[in-house]
Design a protein around this nucleic acid. Sequence first.
DNA 1: CGCGACGTTGATTTGCCTCAACGATTGTGG
DNA 2: CCACAATCGTTGAGGCAAATCAACGTCGCG
Lengths: 193, 193
Amino acid sequence: MTLDLLFVNISKHFLLTEVEKNYFHSKLHFRKLKKKEIYIQENQVCESAAFVLSGCLRSYTIDDNGFEHILQFAPPDWWITDMFSFISQKPGTIYIDAIEVSEIILLSRADQLDIFEKIPAFERYFRILTENSLVSYRKRVMDGLSLTAVERYHDFCKRYPTLIECLPQKQIASYIGVTPEFLSKIRSKVKIV
Amino acid sequence: MTLDLLFVNISKHFLLTEVEKNYFHSKLHFRKLKKKEIYIQENQVCESAAFVLSGCLRSYTIDDNGFEHILQFAPPDWWITDMFSFISQKPGTIYIDAIEVSEIILLSRADQLDIFEKIPAFERYFRILTENSLVSYRKRVMDGLSLTAVERYHDFCKRYPTLIECLPQKQIASYIGVTPEFLSKIRSKVKIV
DNA sequence: CGCGACGTTGATTTGCCTCAACGATTGTGG
DNA sequence: CCACAATCGTTGAGGCAAATCAACGTCGCG
């Protein structure tokens, strides 16, 4: 239950004084999640963003037909939240749960905004994270428009080699936007070649 | 050639002193674009973000088969840039051009970062814009995963009623991710009902 | 006027989905 | 610790949404 991972992450962007570090620390909350435990649900206000210390989380929606569509995986050292609900503090549309036993650190939106006032470097830190996240969503949109399912699968394997190992295949299928059956067929064809 | 639109936009988020306003103003560059004039090209570093005063811009990629895929339309009062290239100052993958005669204001990344230092409220302004933009890209990813072409078209009509009027149909098709032929068929079916 | 971009429509093809059946693996309660 | 259920991945047959290809009328523009 060490917060080091978070502070190392932050220190890649700027250096905290001891006082700032303590202040920031005082705003954080720690939480453990069991496997499959739900952290955020649809129609619920997402009060906090979560930083993953261990384990792995995912965010997803459930459509009218009951199918899940995965938006993001969050292994250790990643932030995850329902950005829409987090910034607006209105009920959201996504679910976040734990793929495996996980430890996370929570920062509420109110505390985040408070910290932005007190320690402007934090506003920079989160601005940069948001910019990077925007770029990766943009890439995802482009991939959806211009790549075939096979190409999206290969791209996923290249980008997230460590996730490939530990994720059930149906969740990868849900992320790249195909049915589990079809992903299975993609994989069997690749092997033969 | 008035910058008012930009300053009104900013004033929705925070108030500028006269000094700050002048400083910010001194960093801006004005540019006119002819219809179809290209502002940013693939493999080029995107030095500046653009704020649209009049007209309309679009960003898009061209895939291996020569097809365009539109990422964003930018009518007046919107910012547009190749975020990947803008933040990394590395060669990008997207094109930005003018759909019609347009007037834009340019802010270079270097100047933006400089302004963040001098006037922290600007860092907040752009953080908020980036957060909102991230949310809309996220929605676009979800729509691509869970909606049919017909549903994406109706959603587009609802969200961008003013754009529907002035855009050639093939560009709407490119944005929602279908061929122009198929969008034509979608529209003809809707009319009959 | 004539060319090129655009929208339309129809015939055909294809990428991916649906549904169903089957082993293999995981997990769980007795 | 085993037995059984539940979940997962695989495979095949058939179906559908959307792409492709081609032909044609219209319009804006040099």
